[in-house]
Nucleic acid binder design. Structure first.
Lengths: 322, 322
DNA sequence: CTGTTAGCGCTTTCAT
DNA sequence: ATGAAAGCGCTAACAG
């Protein structure tokens, strides 16, 4: 304690926080001693007595390799800063996020993130801290959420592609949910898609890894197996960019021969040729809604409440690839 | 206090942390009451008394739109998790980072980030918290740092491009440091580059915005002004990807007519055609060194020390564009 | 201007 | 198995 080095507890506080009611000379002396001793006030004790407790939000980021997630993280950080929240992040790179969640839960007031596991597992890992689940199309009982109405976007997209003259429409899905590579478990995006396609037609669906390369490979496979397709809906923009590259390699004209439509609305999509058309997700709104939930919970001091739910609607962003 | 609702303080603690030495029945009763009241132990008081204080690192991310920074953030997060650090992030999107720094400083033990301002400004915003400066090529007096020896990488690159037969080598620089668009203030990457180019030759340097689009525009401008260049070093991979696109549009063969070499080593560079050659920065090492500093500081309990400095060397990654 | 007292909300230690 | 007391390191409020 720096108090030993001259004065009393309180005077040290006054000097370090430069409050008034202290002799300038004593202040200098205290500051000097504290520096010499390398003294640092404990942030724990400080926040314990602080009148206005700092509000901290935990964010579980799925992957720092997919710009979709990092852009959401960026939006959330910006939004959080403007609303006076601190953000502690953890990433769950291909794990299910519950590990990250249970690391975070003791340090924060609320956790926001993409979680693909069951309601029960999330609740258990949350350890009593409220969780805001992002981006699920299905609703988890008893959890706050900012959902995504991709279904309506996909319906609109299929209709629009038809209107543009595409007769056979295929899809490149993610193989993420398929634990054995041999059997494909359709993602919910894929299930929505299949529902809006005429049941009569053969299904032209191929799955790949969620990356640019995965999209390329899947596109090649799709065109080999179903050469008749005139439009392809792709699980996300990253894979769609890969598909555009593959089309270029295969010398297939986009959108002349095949229309390619991604999902996400990444700005990266502007960088390929032709620029990627996509079902665009309003990530700014997603972040803002998540913070709305956080603010609402803070207002009632994080007491138990009925789940707060928001839905964000995507919109079609027609660039050139479809 | 849930103690009012039945038992005493400690019994509540015992129940909530399920410690032993408590009747199973009382425990259940306490848990039930605490849930009904929506009771949450204060994380502030908890961390105050915790034997092992949680170590928290602040990370100032420059931009969530440039994968270079998000990938570093990802590496840091992973590395931090494995070494038992929490990470609080703030982003400084195009601001100078001191605002983010001063937001973070009361909440963390040490701050890591890219800072382009002066030593004094950083120190002031840090408010006594140690700072680890990343990626500067110049050294800031009295600050811990993980520096980047880009100079040697650029020298090697210029030499290699010459060896591959490129006679005139141009550069696309960032206009970030130029506050008026009309006068170009060369970045340090650019100054290094110019030093390794024969002083006799006319300088073929053009500056643009740090984005894919900025790279495209700058490439077009460069080829118009200096049609004789046979190789181009680009400020970063994002801009280099733009340059590759522009070359495609202008029908310039890469690497046949012009070799294009980026800086950063983004995996995104694999996604363009031809795949981008680049001066690759080992982001994993960068993150690891930053955490080495943090660990060293934690070991001496964040007392004042002489600056700790690491240097990370880049390596040339020859894919196909150069 | 400075020092003393009283908590912040929890956990640990020691009694019961 | 439970309760009482002490203290984590700080700051607010009051005394001197």
């Amino acid at each position: 304690m720096a108090a030993l080095a001259g004065v009393s507890r309180q005077t040290v506080t006054r000097a370090l926080n430069d409050m008034n009611g202290i002799n300038d000379e004593t202040k200098q002396r205290v500051l000097e001693v504290s520096k010499r001793l390398g003294y640092r006030p404990s942030r724990f004790a400080r926040s314990l007595v602080a009148r206005e407790k700092t509000r901290t939000l935990g964010l579980v980021v799925n992957s720092f390799r997919n710009p979709y997630y990092t852009e959401i993280a960026g939006e959330l950080l910006a939004c959080a800063a403007s609303r006076n929240w601190q953000v502690i992040m953890a990433s769950s790179e291909s794990a299910d996020g519950t590990a990250a969640l249970s690391m975070l839960s003791p340090q924060v007031d609320v956790v926001v993130g993409h979680f693909w596991t069951s309601h029960e597992q999330i609740e258990q890992a949350a350890n009593g801290i409220p969780v805001v689940v992002l981006d699920r199309t299905d609703h988890l009982p008893g959890m706050h959420s900012v959902e995504l109405d991709l279904r309506s976007g996909i319906e609109e997209a299929v209709r629009a592609l038809r209107a543009k003259g595409a007769r056979a429409i295929g899809m490149i899905d993610s193989n993420y949910s398929s634990h054995q590579p041999s059997v494909h478990v359709p993602s919910s995006r894929c299930r929505d898609f299949e529902e809006f396609i005429d049941p009569g037609r053969p299904k032209a669906v191929v799955a790949g890894e969620e990356s640019i390369r995965g999209g390329s490979l899947a596109f090649v496979e799709l065109m080999r197996a179903h050469p008749y397709v005139e439009a392809v809906l792709v699980f996300n923009d990253l894979m769609a960019i890969g598909a555009v590259h593959a089309a270029h390699t295969l010398d297939i004209k986009v959108p002349g021969q095949v229309r390619i439509l991604g999902i996400d609305g990444l700005s990266l999509g502007e960088a390929v040729h032709p620029p990627l058309s996509t079902i665009s997700i309003d990530r700014e709104a997603l972040a803002a809604r998540a913070l709305d939930v956080a603010d609402a919970l803070a207002a009632i001091n994080f007491a138990e409440t009925a789940p707060i739910r928001y839905v964000v609607r995507p919109r079609l962003l027609w660039r050139e690839s479809a």
